[in-house]
Amino acid sequence: MKPLIRLFFKTLRVLIGPFLLLGNWLTQPKGIDRPPAEQQAIDARTHNLALYHYPTCPFCLKTRRVIRRLSLNIELRDAQNDPVHRAALIAGGGKPQVPCLLMIDAGGQQSWLYESDAINAFLNSEFGAAPAA
């Protein structure tokens, strides 16, 4: 019974995935327009971040939209189609759940943040536009 259920959901993802990607492409958010020096500082801060994702995962789409809206230069690692990235996600984070944000601090220490809402909250708090005074 389990293989049948897995086959059903895999087929559903294959059928719906292209429509999710098309909808995301058609409704892409506009990124923040920052002065070049400020954008370079943001890029330097995001240099040690990587998002493990599946291309058609709705939660991953949600996180990638926030990355685009905030104009962040975060490396995207496809854990669905790239076995090297999938193995790194499981070895480092402990489970193949996506989205997952890998954060490497200045000392080389890795921390893994799961759940799209937690990742989006972190990105908004760290890189979101400053509130108007």
Rank of each mutant, 00 (worst) to 15 (best):
K30T: 14
L61Q: 00
T56L: 02
N48W: 04
R34I: 10
K62V: 00
T63F: 04
R77C: 11
K62A: 05
K30R: 13
D82I: 02
L70E: 00
I74W: 09
T63E: 00
I74P: 07
E38K: 08
S71W: 10
P55S: 14
R45T: 04
L49D: 08
P35Q: 12
P36W: 11
H53L: 07
N73I: 02
A41H: 02
L22S: 06
A37C: 01
Q80R: 15
D33L: 11
L22Q: 12
L70I: 04
N24Y: 02
E38P: 04
L70T: 01
L22W: 15
Q39F: 12
Y52N: 08
Y54C: 14
I67L: 08
N48R: 03
R64V: 06
V66L: 07
Q28L: 15
L61H: 07
G23H: 11
K30S: 14
R77S: 10
S71C: 12
P55M: 06
P55G: 00
P83R: 09
A44R: 11
T27D: 12
T56C: 07
K62H: 12
A79F: 01
V66M: 10
A79G: 01
H47V: 04
V66W: 07
H53V: 03
P29E: 11
K30E: 14
C57L: 05
E75G: 07
G31F: 09
Q28G: 07
L51A: 06
Q39V: 09
P83L: 10
Q39I: 09
Y54G: 15
C57G: 07
L49S: 11
N48L: 00
R64S: 05
R64D: 09
R69N: 02
R34F: 02
Y52R: 06
N48K: 06
H53A: 00
L51Q: 02
G23A: 12
R64F: 02
K62I: 00
I42W: 10
R65V: 09
N81D: 13
N24Q: 02
N24H: 05
S71T: 15
L61E: 00
W25Y: 13
G31R: 09
N81Q: 13
P83V: 04
T27N: 13
D33I: 13
R77Q: 15
A50C: 02
I74E: 05
I42Q: 11
Y54K: 10
V66G: 00
I42R: 13
R45S: 14
T63Q: 02
P58K: 10
I74C: 03
Q39S: 09
D43C: 09
D33S: 13
L26R: 08
L61C: 06
L26K: 01
F59C: 09
G31C: 11
W25D: 13
I32V: 11
V66Y: 01
D33Q: 14
T56A: 09
A79R: 00
L51N: 02
N48T: 04
T46S: 00
V66T: 15
R65S: 15
N24V: 04
R64K: 14
Q80E: 15
P29H: 13
S71E: 12
L72Q: 02
L26Y: 00
A41L: 08
L51D: 05
R68A: 14
H53P: 07
L61V: 08
E75D: 15
K62G: 03
T56W: 03
